[in-house]
Design a protein around this nucleic acid. Structure first.
Lengths: 186, 186
DNA sequence: ACCTGAACACCGTTCAAGT
DNA sequence: ACCTGAACACCGTTCAAGT
């Protein structure tokens, strides 16, 4: 189960290199380039990460764990409704970094390992469920709805400011008791 | 301005081949493969379409013009609010075909020619503006908002049924006079 | 057990040579 | 004026050979 010392070291080198290269060139960065930067043969990369998404999941892990911490902090420091919304804003920002690495890993990509998905789910549910039982968010909203909507926004918005606007527009449909401003003439 | 006969013929062959290949393999399909299928050298493809997006724009053109027609039809057959919503559903479906070719071309990609963008804009505004002046849609909503939101949904939804749900959720934030169902307990 | 790196088929892109 | 297709540098991926 536990890796040999040199294998472990190579794995770490690969992830570190991947973090750097993906930050520069995004999630479609060259795998050979990552291996080169790690000082390792391409075969070694494939041994540790059989698929591109497996490697990207490792890169995303750090960002994801921060997102979980922030979810806990918000759960304690803010009332349910506000906490969820604040966290969704953070989620959108994270989804846009590294040329959309986040938005790509947030959706359940086959063979990326389900770890990401379940980590995200617990982080989100921690804020969503209370918000719903307090009647601040529609009860028929799902974790999946939240993730797909924010991932979509992150993918299509040209910059963070636009993403924030689109999120606000979408939230006006999620929040209970919110009445969209009326402008009817009849 | 007008092309020589053989040039014209090659252009048509390329677009036809591109339509077929993109339908099979999506917008990241191999350009060499498209040239091969058109019975033409790769250089000829580059001569007619200097960039991948230029070729994809030509492929998308047919779909786009249908979308414009449908916009006109809906403008005549339905009241403003319903017409817009019906068209947004069509837009979402079109954005999901060919592995997301639509969602890609709907956003203003540099050097795809602005034609797509303006065609889409007139089609959308034809339905959006009346819906707004009748007070069915918030007045602060923009054409850009609409396109980015639907493109985002199309990119993140795993299938058309999910896309439809996400669109409905989003619409509940766009429609005026809609009160999200209340479930408050306090 | 794990690593290496040469090798294969393919890709996007260019450009001299043709007609 | 336009087309051709060989050529280049690169990519993802594999796998015999090494330690």
């Amino acid at each position: 189960m536990t890796l040999r010392a040199d294998a472990r070291r190579n794995r770490d080198l690969l992830v570190a290199a991947a973090i750097a290269v993906v930050a520069e060139e995004g999630p479609d960065a060259s795998l050979n380039e990552i291996a080169r930067r790690a000082g390792v043969g391409p075969g070694t990369l494939y041994r540790h990460f059989p698929t591109r998404d497996a490697l990207l999941a490792a890169v995303f892990e750090g960002r994801l764990s921060r997102l979980c911490e922030q979810s806990e902090e918000l759960a304690e420091s803010k009332p349910p409704g506000e906490a969820l919304i604040a966290w969704l804003r953070l989620l959108t920002v994270h989804a846009m970094t590294d040329q959309g690495l986040g938005a790509r890993m947030m959706l359940p990509t086959p063979a990326a390992g389900v770890d990401c998905w379940t980590m995200l789910r617990t982080a989100a549910d921690r804020l969503l469920l209370p918000a719903q039982s307090e009647g601040r968010v529609r009860p028929d909203i799902d974790f999946t709805d939240l993730v797909e909507l924010t991932a979509g926004i992150a993918r299509s918005a040209p910059d963070p400011a636009r993403a924030d606007r689109l999120l606000t527009l979408t939230l006006d449909g999620l929040r209970t008791g919110h009445v969209a401003q009326r402008t009817e003439k009849q």
